[in-house]
């Protein structure tokens, strides 16, 4: 028994040591990319909800800044009025839609541009991917519909295990905030490729997108601070909603399902105990045992 424990302990210790040592070893190789700092998000945790005012501000930042290069092709104007979203009314969503021109055909089949309707999707800033690439130094700016779920950073051991219990799922928005705020002068000796911009948090540090946001760039009507920090958080929250529009409904239903399953598990447990107890009893008594202590 002792020998077995020793071997097990040695194995565990060995694998732990390897787990700790290996990343340190690997880090010497790659250029250091710091982990994005965590943020407080209203939509984190089991009871998380989007902050409507924040989504509305983030939408303003997207509309006035990001939208000039980035499409949002999978989000429709009607979504702005969906429950669990930015909280616009259907009329307000339709009004936003009417600000946009949508390519369509008239009755004679001629291409026209008509006013947007609630059912339309956000139109792209470039006619097609190739045009987008040509206008942006060879690479098309990515669509932002799923970007908050499409970006992450390596959590590493043991954090990814803890995340299961803390429900940390906000790597995407944390990374986006860090990226938007991470522009700085390249350190000495860093060779920035032509057309690149130095960003502390971008893998490889040379990002094609120039610094998109600065203090005071977008006017807020609700008195929120007009700072880069606030813009970055608001637009990241908005993009999280764009990528996961049913998050609020998901967490709400999740809580109900959890309560239900815990109750059912409890009932099942006692039923199981009862059923097994009855078969146990005569045998346990025959064997001179106390039947109330049976657990099998």
């Amino acid at each position: 028994m002792t020998m077995q424990r020793t071997i097990l302990a040695l194995t565990l210790a060995g694998s732990l040591a390897a787990a700790v040592a290996a990343p340190a070893f690997a880090q010497e190789h790659s250029h250091e990319t710091p982990q994005p700092p965590g943020n407080k998000w209203s939509f984190a945790g089991p009871f998380g909800k989007y902050d409507e005012a924040q989504l509305q501000r983030g939408f303003k930042v997207y509309k006035e800044v990001c939208a000039s290069c980035h499409s949002l092709s999978m989000v429709a104007f009607r979504n702005l009025a969906d429950p669990g979203g930015p909280g616009y009314s259907p009329a307000q969503a339709a009004a936003v839609a009417a600000e946009y021109k949508i390519k369509d055909l008239d009755d004679k089949g001629e291409p026209i541009e008509r006013d947007g309707r609630a059912a339309d999707y956000f139109p792209p800033p470039f006619p097609n991917d190739r045009a987008a690439a040509a206008a942006n130094g060879g690479v098309a700016p990515p669509d932002l519909s799923t970007i908050a779920k499409a970006r992450t950073y390596e959590r590493g051991f043991p954090w990814f295990v803890f995340d299961i219990f803390t429900q940390y799922q906000e790597q995407g928005p944390d990374y986006l905030v860090a990226l938007l705020k991470g522009y700085e002068d390249p350190p000495q000796g860093f060779q920035l490729p032509p057309g690149g911009n130095y960003n502390k948090y971008f893998p490889g540090h040379a990002i094609a997108m120039p610094k998109p946001l600065q203090d005071g760039q977008v006017t807020y009507d609700d008195g929120a601070p007009q700072t880069l920090d606030q813009y970055a958080k608001d637009v990241s929250a908005f993009l999280m909603w764009a990528a996961e529009p049913h998050l609020v409904a998901r967490k709400r239903l999740g809580f109900q399902v959890m309560i239900f399953l815990i109750v059912l598990a409890g009932l099942m447990y006692f039923t199981k105990k009862k059923v097994w107890h009855e078969v146990e009893k005569p045998r346990e008594i025959a064997a001179g045992q106390d039947p109330s202590k049976t657990t099998l």
């Binding site: 089991p46 779920k149 995340d163 299961i164 429900q167 799922q169 998901r250 967490k251 239903l253 999740g254 809580f255 399902v257 959890m258 399953l261 815990i262 059912l264 598990a265 099942m268 447990y269 039923t271 199981k272 059923v275 097994w276």
Partner: peptide
């Protein structure tokens, strides 16, 4: 009944991921 009980316990684990960590 024993299988059923543990199946429900397993469902709690599944639901934890589906509702709270769907992209983990």
């Amino acid at each position: 009944v024993k299988d059923g009980f543990f199946m429900v316990v397993f469902m709690i684990l599944l639901a934890w991921f589906v509702f709270y960590l769907p992209n983990f």
